[in-house]
């Protein structure tokens, strides 16, 4: 899971070394928190959250084949 998000997000950002991904399980749900360099916030969110939505969709489709819903939070 962590690897997937990393694969997706790294090429989107200008500061890949400041990419942090935390994964924890909360009430049977996977919660991923994504934190990036402040300048890259816009890049992972996109116009009207387009990129963020796309990331969530891709991550969920990979995981729903497995078992549970995933939440992807972008932290500031």
């Amino acid at each position: 899971m962590k690897k997937l998000i990393e694969t997706i997000v790294k090429p989107l950002v200008d500061h890949p070394d400041e990419l942090r991904i935390g994964v924890e399980e909360r009430q049977g749900r996977l919660v991923c928190s994504l934190s990036v360099h402040p300048e890259d916030m816009g890049k992972v969110i996109g116009k009207q959250g387009r990129v963020a939505t796309a990331i969530r969709t891709v991550v969920n489709s990979a995981e729903s084949a497995g078992r549970k819903r995933v939440r992807v939070d972008i932290m500031d």
Partner: peptide, 25 residues
């Protein structure tokens, strides 16, 4: 089927991401 998703939603999300990455490169 995994890559397409329901009514192509996964495919469209992939397309969206690839669009951004392509224009980065």
């Amino acid at each position: 089927a995994l890559l397409i998703g329901k009514r192509g939603q996964t495919l469209n999300a992939l397309q969206q991401l690839v669009q951004v990455v392509a224009n980065n490169y």
